[in-house]
Nucleic acid binder design. Sequence first.
DNA 1: CATGTATGTGTAAATAATACACAATTATAG
DNA 2: CTATAATTGTGTATTATTTACACATACATG
Lengths: 237, 237
Amino acid sequence: MCIIYTYMWQEQKIKIAVDAIVFGYSNNTLNVLLVKQKFGLLKDTWVLVGGFVQNNEALKDAVARELKEEAGIEVNYLEQLYTFGDDINRDPRDRVISVAYFALVNSTELHLTADTDADDAQWFPIYNIPKLGFDHNKIIEVALERLKNKLSYQPIGFDLLPEEFLFSELENLYCTLLNKEIDRRNFRKKFLSYNVIEETNKMGGKGTGRPAKLFKFNKQKYQLLEKEGFHFDIKFA
Amino acid sequence: MCIIYTYMWQEQKIKIAVDAIVFGYSNNTLNVLLVKQKFGLLKDTWVLVGGFVQNNEALKDAVARELKEEAGIEVNYLEQLYTFGDDINRDPRDRVISVAYFALVNSTELHLTADTDADDAQWFPIYNIPKLGFDHNKIIEVALERLKNKLSYQPIGFDLLPEEFLFSELENLYCTLLNKEIDRRNFRKKFLSYNVIEETNKMGGKGTGRPAKLFKFNKQKYQLLEKEGFHFDIKFA
DNA sequence: CATGTATGTGTAAATAATACACAATTATAG
DNA sequence: CTATAATTGTGTATTATTTACACATACATG
């Protein structure tokens, strides 16, 4: 039964890393943030933002640090996604277990600033991700699945949009990510019925056609309603 | 930018463990499996089944191994829950990050067999969990939340029941765990409408009252329907 | 054989989801 | 300046789903 102690005798040689899958959205396209490895075995291959956890550092702090160091960004939303540690050889150098985090930003407002070289960090459209180092393509797949699922039952779409947005942008986001056609009227009706997005008095349409109102998400109100048992739920035929 | 290499210079001293939250259900009560520490700082305190991961061992294999070694059981359902690594001092000895897994068994059919001492492993009703070592009380909370949520949109309730069960047992499970009253007729109607549970020709009521049919869950059929876009969804007023 | 207890079933009302079309507002082109 | 193209904004009828609700059936017990 003294399993724990048995294993303490055998020195553990596993390293622990964090990786961040950062999603951005602009021009009706979902993007993923990647960085280029500059050294080592995988020099010049693209990978997710990530790195090893420091001895006295919380996991989530490690992610925030890497995001700042490697891409110079702060994110709107961050949650733990999954811990990848079943494939013993996912890192060719050592046994590394990676705790993957899932992050959302509005990439239209975002400046990527890699320390030494501006080309180091870049957005890639989700339908055009290159072959990445480690198991990072797999990790992105898992993250995308999570994003799609959450979109329907948590109001995280707003973290991919600017503070103030057009209804057509919101609609496009849902259509694009869920790959479904939506009735514009029913979509708007349902969203408005939840009373969590508010009309501003600004207008935002720039192109042709009738100018559109800008809306914004009232997060406070949402959190209040949630405590009272309200369930966000956007589904389509 | 060479973050990864920077941290390799600083030797990482983090240990990685797995812990399993095993839920069982019997007598209309949800139970959690706990084991008693036999050595070390936390001797005689109750904790979750768990231990350190071996160098060449997949995370999920580590969990399965611990479950077998510490309690002698195999589980119906196992999924990764969350990785606890934000509290630097969650283990008083060293920095330990724990990947927690969430497991379901039908505890009525279950023999607990701890290697050396039968008292080592025991079921505790969820409403009567003692103060545990480490942050294990917290972990159980997270797991319970997950269980409650999943119950509504994945057919995992069956993994807590025997192969063949009464409708009243299924109903009780949902009532108890979700802490809601359910209309017996509507519950049955909805469940049957999904066509994933089948009537056997056996009867199973033992006590007083009209004898009841035994039903069983057809997992194959469920997985088939799922591929065709079917979504399991049990909600109540 | 009467009583208690749990099982098994149908229907009407209310609510939510879907399908669907046209007027309003601006930019642009002729 | 007028016509056209493009996009926003809105309501209602139909259908499907969810909810509420009550009584007959089968066995065990005394």
